[in-house]
Design a protein around this nucleic acid. Structure first.
Length: 218
DNA sequence: CACCAGGCAAGTA
DNA sequence: TACTTGCATGGT
């Protein structure tokens, strides 16, 4: 599948319509790169509102840092993030990714940013608890790498607009966007954010377009 | 009451 | 390879 100018224009149009509707969403909301990483794990299959509570609890406790999480006892970490659900699993995953960050760059994310995106992605996927979406969220929002994050909303919207089949695999959807959308971290961040926001606002139903969705005629 | 939320891993067929 | 299930909470 080579580049298709018509598809490029269609993605551009979707981006434009959604940006006009929602403006600059300013994703990812966080005070540090590590906060993005923690949030990426905590938000797995979980609403963002409940993740915020967990992040606040970590901050209140002075524990939102690589070394703090590594050295904290699992049951205590588990209690702090309870509101985000799956707390025992996520406590383990937070420790895993924190250990990875400590090992790879001593906690200095700036060093990670210099590394090759492809190999960094492979390394992240080796960490237990980090799948494709979480890895790409970290790469894009914490490390400013130009990779597109595919989520359930994105696939639903793309499928509904005939851009890819409902059954398309994660990497296929991602490659599709990489081919037909600017390779620019800022734009990729905004695009993903816009798609999530649009889906939440207009596409609660599994099928069909909502009448007020700005994409209804595209 | 059912169902979903900014998933992933491990097990089964 | 392609499903299925466990993981847990909070909101609608």
């Amino acid at each position: 599948m080579g580049k298709d100018p018509k598809v490029e224009r269609k993605l551009k149009k979707i981006y434009g319509l959604l940006e006009k509707e929602f403006g600059d969403l300013g994703w990812w909301p966080a005070e540090s790169g590590f906060e993005v990483i923690a949030g990426a794990v905590l938000t797995q299959n979980t609403s963002w509102k409940n993740v915020e509570k967990a992040i606040k609890a970590l901050k209140r406790d002075g524990s939102l840092g690589v070394n703090e999480i590594i050295s904290m006892r699992a049951p205590r970490l588990s209690r702090l993030i309870r509101s985000a659900g799956y707390h025992r699993v996520k406590a383990r995953r937070l420790k895993n990714i924190s250990r990875f960050v400590a090992d790879e760059c001593g906690g200095r994310l700036g060093k990670l940013k210099k590394r090759d995106v492809g190999r960094l992605r492979e390394a992240l996927l080796e960490v237990n608890g980090i799948g494709p979406e979480t890895a790409d969220s970290i790469l894009l929002y914490a490390l400013d790498k130009p990779v597109f994050v595919v989520d359930a909303y994105t696939r639903r919207i793309f499928a509904r607009h005939g851009l890819n089949p409902e059954s398309a695999a994660y990497d296929e959807v991602q490659a599709f966007v990489h081919e037909h959308f600017p390779c620019d971290a800022a734009k990729l961040k905004q695009f993903h954010a816009l798609l999530v926001e649009a889906a939440k606002a207009f596409c609660k139903k599994k099928r069909g377009h909502c009448g007020r969705c700005p994409l209804k005629n595209t």
